[in-house]
Amino acid sequence: MKITGNTILITGGTSGIGRALAEAFHDRGNRVIITGRREDLLEQITAGRPGMAGLPLDLADPDSVRRVQAEVQTCFPELNVLIANAGISRAEDMTAETWDASDAQAIIEINIFGVLRVTAAFLPLLKRQQDATIMATSSALAFVPRADFPAYCASKAFLHSWLQSLRHQLSGFPIEVLELSPPYVQTELTGVGQASDPRAMPVDVYLSEVMDLLERKHHARGEVLLERDFARRWAERDGQYDVIFDAMNPAKKRRSP
C-alpha cells in the first residue's frame, strides 16, 4: 500500500482507531473521506483539515450505503483505498435469564454485513484503479476470544477468514487486501472506561507502529499485526491455545442447580 498520494475512504472515521487513521493518512498528503452517523462530528473533524471530507453513512442501512457510493463515484472517482473500520462491541452474558440474540444481531449487522456492504459498494471503483487497497479492521481477538464478548470476537474471526478468501479471489487485480488486527487499545469501543484503561495501548502509540508497518510493507500474509500479538495469532499452531485462553478467561465458579 502506498502511504501518500491516495484517495482514501474510512468508515467509522469519527472516533478511535478510525479517526487516528484518517488523521495519520491526511498528515501524509492523502485525500481522506471519513464516514460516520454523526454529522456534527464529521463537520468538526474536517473543518480544520483541508482536503478531508465527511459523508454521513449508516452501514446498517443499505440505502445509506448506496447514497454514499453514488456520491463518491461522482465526486471522488479516483478512490483507490477503502478502509472498512467501523465496528461495535458489547459484552454478553449468555447465562442470564434475560439474554437474547439482540446484541449479537446488532454486532453482526455492523461488523460483518457492514464490511460486506461497503466492500461490495466500492469494489467496482477500486477495480478500475492501477494501485488499490482494501483494509478491514479485525482484532487480535479473532485468534483467541474473550468469552465475555462472544459475538464480537466471532465477528472478527469471520472477517479474518473472509479477508483471506477476498485476497485470493482478487489476486488477479492490482488490489492489495490487508487485515488490521489491533490489540486492546485506548478507545471507547467497549465504553468510556476503555479510553483511560492503563492496560490498553494508547491510540497514538498503536498508530505509530501501524504506520511504520505499512511504510515498510511489513505485513506477512496481508496481516497488519503487532509483534506483541504474535503469541495469540499462533497460539493453536504453537500448542499454547488453552494456556492463553485460560489466562484471558478466568474460570467461573460452578453454579449450584
Rank of each mutant, 00 (worst) to 15 (best):
M135W: 13
A136K: 08
A136E: 08
A136D: 07
T137P: 09
S138K: 02
S139C: 09
A140R: 13
A140G: 13
L141M: 15
L141I: 13
L141F: 12
A142W: 03
A142H: 01
A142F: 03
A142M: 04
V144T: 09
V144R: 09
P145L: 03
P145F: 03
P145Y: 06
P145W: 05
P145T: 03
A147E: 13
A147D: 11
A147Q: 13
A147F: 14
D148T: 10
D148G: 00
D148M: 04
P150A: 02
A151H: 02
A151N: 00
A151V: 05
A151F: 03
A151R: 02
Y152E: 03
C153Y: 02
C153S: 06
C153Q: 03
C153W: 02
A154Q: 00
A154D: 00
A154T: 01
K156G: 01
A157K: 01
F158K: 00
F158A: 06
F158T: 02
L159S: 02
H160F: 00
H160A: 12
H160D: 15
S161I: 00
S161A: 08
S161P: 00
S161T: 09
S161H: 03
S161G: 05
S161Y: 05
W162I: 00
W162Q: 02
L163Y: 05
L163S: 06
Q164T: 03
Q164P: 00
S165W: 04
S165P: 00
S165L: 04
S165F: 05
L166R: 02
Q169F: 05
Q169C: 04
L170E: 09
L170F: 08
L170I: 05
S171N: 11
S171G: 11
S171K: 12
S171C: 13
G172R: 06
G172Q: 12
F173V: 03
F173Y: 15
F173W: 15
F173K: 15
P174D: 13
P174K: 12
I175L: 09
I175M: 08
I175Q: 12
I175W: 09
E176M: 14
E176Y: 10
V177E: 07
V177P: 06
L178P: 04
E179M: 14
E179G: 07
L180D: 08
S181H: 14
S181Y: 09
P183C: 14
P183G: 15
P183A: 15
Y184I: 12
Y184T: 12
Y184H: 14
V185G: 07
V185N: 05
V185R: 06
V185P: 04
V185W: 04
V185L: 05
Q186S: 11
Q186I: 08
Q186W: 10
Q186A: 07
Q186H: 12
Q186K: 13
T187F: 07
T187L: 05
E188I: 06
T190W: 07
T190P: 03
T190Y: 05
G191H: 07
G191M: 07
G191F: 06
V192G: 08
V192C: 04
G193P: 14
Q194H: 14
Q194L: 12
Q194V: 08
S196L: 09
R199Y: 13
R199I: 10
A200R: 14
A200Q: 12
M201E: 15
M201F: 15
P202I: 11
P202R: 15
P202W: 11
